[in-house]
Nucleic acid binder design. Sequence first.
DNA 1: CATGAATGAGGATTCATTCAT
DNA 2: TATGAATGAATCCTCATTCAT
Lengths: 184, 184, 184, 184
Amino acid sequence: MTRQKLFDAALRLVGERGAAHVTVDEIAAEAGVAKGTVYYNFAGKDALVDELLRHGVDLLAARLRAAESADDAVPALVEGMLGFFAEYPAFGQLLVGELWRTPGQWHDTLRLLRDDLVSIIRGHMGRLADTGRLPAGVDVGTAAAALFGTLLVVAVDWQVFQPERTLAQTRDAVLVLVRGLGGA
Amino acid sequence: MTRQKLFDAALRLVGERGAAHVTVDEIAAEAGVAKGTVYYNFAGKDALVDELLRHGVDLLAARLRAAESADDAVPALVEGMLGFFAEYPAFGQLLVGELWRTPGQWHDTLRLLRDDLVSIIRGHMGRLADTGRLPAGVDVGTAAAALFGTLLVVAVDWQVFQPERTLAQTRDAVLVLVRGLGGA
Amino acid sequence: MTRQKLFDAALRLVGERGAAHVTVDEIAAEAGVAKGTVYYNFAGKDALVDELLRHGVDLLAARLRAAESADDAVPALVEGMLGFFAEYPAFGQLLVGELWRTPGQWHDTLRLLRDDLVSIIRGHMGRLADTGRLPAGVDVGTAAAALFGTLLVVAVDWQVFQPERTLAQTRDAVLVLVRGLGGA
Amino acid sequence: MTRQKLFDAALRLVGERGAAHVTVDEIAAEAGVAKGTVYYNFAGKDALVDELLRHGVDLLAARLRAAESADDAVPALVEGMLGFFAEYPAFGQLLVGELWRTPGQWHDTLRLLRDDLVSIIRGHMGRLADTGRLPAGVDVGTAAAALFGTLLVVAVDWQVFQPERTLAQTRDAVLVLVRGLGGA
DNA sequence: CATGAATGAGGATTCATTCAT
DNA sequence: TATGAATGAATCCTCATTCAT
């Protein structure tokens, strides 16, 4: 329905151009509704983006949790992240574009969302450590944050600057890179 | 002098909040000059940011080239990138915030700058490959891009979300992560 | 029923904040009905306020006419006006807030309503004049208008800025003030 | 200069139509400047009106204080108020239109301004009382508030509904009305 | 009788840019 | 070389009104 149409439209535009460079008029037009409808369904432009971020991260988190059942956590995580951002490239751009702003209007939301995702990854890595498959001396917290950032940025860089590569190619390159995690 | 004051002011504000959320008034105020002075010294706001990006990347490129002389290329690169962004955290934020926007006003500039940096890293890794220290099956181009993104994002995430960690801790975490590169 | 609930809600809100600063949404919410119901029962927001004004003035006019039977017209008028606005303070605010706007959407309505009220007062004063209890040189028309304005404004000022005073105190102050009318 | 032009324009428009029914565009056009200029000189529309109220009341207060030197306080006050609002009828409308709104954006400002004016009048009346020219049993505070409201509303009603009358006629009518104050 | 999602014209506000000094 | 008052296009948001249910 209307909210979903607006979500889709906003994700497409905001991901590519950045929230600040998309007008509410454009979002409404892209969604095929009148401008007022945006304000009937959301508190405002910022709130729309905020809900967009939460919604997208929920989807991603579900995807990452699904990787839990896999034997090899790291490849499953890599495949999960890359696959997700291949489906929603604009959401990846949105996330990279806003996640590390200091006082941005979504900083609080983003901090929570980042912590969600990182803690899921940390859970996977903790299980690796328990089964002795993680090199000694690795701080799980920092490593999880680093892996999250790596996967996010590799996925987005792939979509933006090297879209001709396949998912498999990109996945293999990442797996070689992070082979240090011992999970592969 | 004036240009430098404006550079510093702009870097601080634009890095934290994103170019679109900083006004020329604020930059002028932060630099302690009148608004007209910004336009006397730069063609406009976009041009100021553009020059900021070029200037910052030049500094970073110099730092990375300096790592060439090191025995171990990868640790030197890691240390170089992390150290640079520890000095200029706002520049890191600016870069992550704008680099992967598709039609942004600085997209062309940024594509060139990214290619510069990635090709420097690729040079280091090519030398690793030549001396047989790189695992088989690693595509140097993709790996260089991935390493660049990883280091950029890890550095910024460190500064923004985990500033209490030391450079050494962060460096070690990254080195474990990318041990697959075989350089360490 | 519904119309009355809307009347009450609108009177409360419009009196306090002014017609322009109250939305139809708010009136509906205050009345506990849906927004569409406002339009089912009234032609629109302006029409609702218009009917509100007419209805309120009718009540007030009835109250003032009742004062006719009193021996002392002026004290009866004063008591009547003050008592009425003590019961409906929001209506007093509405009236003062809109009565002297030049091209307001209710100007025509208000001019008629004001004339109604003033002519009732004029009637009382004319009877005073007939029985020789009015000082010479008083133009009945002007004096009636002045008395009406005075009572309206004193009543509202009392309710808004000095609600701790009693009706009796306020009435006495006015009676002293207008003792020049000779009716007291 | 610019601020004054905006003050004049705003007073003319806002007085007649009410603040809510005047657009910033109109004020700018009436002042002969661009819309942005309004925002360069004032924090916003509300702030402009706020400053307008303060400024106008300052003028009026000065006029009323000047009446202190007069022998007969009450006629001097009457003449002062009526004369002032004959010069600035729009300001009178603005004042009556906004003064008794409860939570309006200017309520705090207006409460202060009202108290200023009433206390000046109270001063005059206190001097009357000291010299025994005030009837016994008059509460000076309430009477001052009542006199202020009366004069304000009579002045505005005169300008709006009976502009054909002269100042002298209106003044005499008021003096008869308030003869109870004993000052005339 | 009543509802509430949708509309879009209207209006407040922002801000990059200009230009006379 | 620097200033800051002025500009106006661009944009966000409000809200009275409509209409299908």
